[in-house]
């Protein structure tokens, strides 16, 4: 028995050595290529922590533009950077990412980094089931495997083992439907759940563009925010992390198309959204965070997409948001 354990121990040790040597080999061969292929945001982030005074975390609203109607194609963060001569603002953004990812990245800002401020987009829609269980989530989580502080080979191995939340489209839809069906809204029937609200007659039968858009507004904006919401927990952690790291944290509440929402769905939706928004602002201002409230900043004409309620803006809209951020930094300094 003693011989057996000796034999096993030697081999376990050998395996450990193989892994350590493999890690060195991997770091100097295909690691960079793997990051570029599977986790390009990590490269952006590394560049930002090395050079920026202000890291600007966002998803697609930062850079989305109209190549037909916009004269100025710059992202919001670039506009801010151009207007603040004494601060270097670098964005870390990609489509559909959210507070969970921002939180993981903020954790990785090293002490030696020149970064002193963190701007984070507070996107109202990201708190809803439509975003949390979207089919883009698996790909976002897959990228995040490389954001963790582990040996390179371990991160790569975990990627191969698919050690991230893999949410199939079907499973995501099931979770969404479940929430829309069961979550109680603060209204009487038929506006007591998302499902019932969507069934309510409006804008002709199912399939008309207005009806489809109105239902999208309900599905993406009608929810009750509370401390149990996973995204709230992520934002809370961001606040804690920034306090620990002594970083100035600015939440930028993005504009929503309230005009269109009211026209298509009605004032109840605006009432619910405003209640949630106020709750958010109070919560984070109460925690000492600067919240730039742009929720109702833009009119319907500033919004790019006409068939889905997104936070993509024409250049004037992006400029207005950028200006609100610039104002904050100018006042601070």
């Amino acid at each position: 028995m003693k011989d057996l354990w000796k034999k096993i121990s030697i081999r376990v040790l050998l395996l450990g050595m193989i892994v350590i040597l493999s890690n060195y080999l991997y770091r100097y061969t295909t690691y960079e290529k793997d990051i570029a292929e599977n986790s390009p945001l990590w490269l952006e982030f590394q560049n930002a922590v090395a050079e920026a005074d202000v890291i600007y975390f966002s998803s697609s609203p930062n850079a989305a533009y109209s190549d037909i109607y916009d004269d100025d194609n710059r992202s919001i963060s670039k506009m801010v950077d151009d207007d603040l001569n004494d601060l270097k603002v670098i964005s870390v953004d990609t489509g559909a990412i959210h507070a969970d990812i921002f939180k993981t990245l903020i954790r990785r800002i090293p002490e030696s980094s020149p970064v002193n401020s963190v701007v984070v987009h507070l996107n109202y829609r990201s708190f809803g089931a439509g975003w949390m269980y979207s089919n883009l989530e698996s790909s976002i989580q897959k990228q995040a495997v490389f954001y963790h502080d582990r040996p390179a080979i371990i991160n790569r191995f975990l990627l191969g083992l698919n050690h991230y939340d893999v949410l199939s489209e079907k499973e995501g839809k099931r979770k969404m439907d479940h929430l829309w069906e069961t979550e109680e809204l603060p209204f009487e029937f038929p506006r007591n759940t998302v499902e019932n609200w969507c069934k309510l007659d409006k804008w002709g039968g199912y399939g008309t563009p207005e009806r489809t858009l109105a239902d999208s507004y309900i599905k993406n904006f009608a929810f009750v925010l509370d401390e149990e919401n996973p995204r709230i927990q992520d934002f809370d952690e961001i606040v804690e992390l920034c306090n620990e790291k002594n970083l100035d944290l600015i939440f930028v509440l993005l504009p929503e198309n309230l005009e269109q929402a009211e026209e298509l769905v009605g004032k109840e939706l605006i009432q619910l959204m405003t209640t949630n928004k106020n709750w958010l602002v109070d919560r984070y201002e109460g925690s000492g965070v600067t919240v730039i409230d742009n929720f109702s900043l833009l009119p319907d004409s500033s919004f790019l997409e006409r068939d889905f309620p997104s936070e993509h803006y024409y250049d004037e809209g992006r400029q207005a948001i950028a200006q609100s951020i610039v104002n904050y930094f100018k006042q601070r300094n």
């Binding site: 892994v19 493999s22 991997y26």
Partner: peptide, 17 residues
């Protein structure tokens, strides 16, 4: 052979689920 296989598994596995 083990070393090669371990290296392949840990660094070259398919990234998609």
């Amino acid at each position: 052979i083990y070393s090669c296989l371990i290296y392949f598994v840990m660094t070259m596995s398919g990234a998609e689920f």
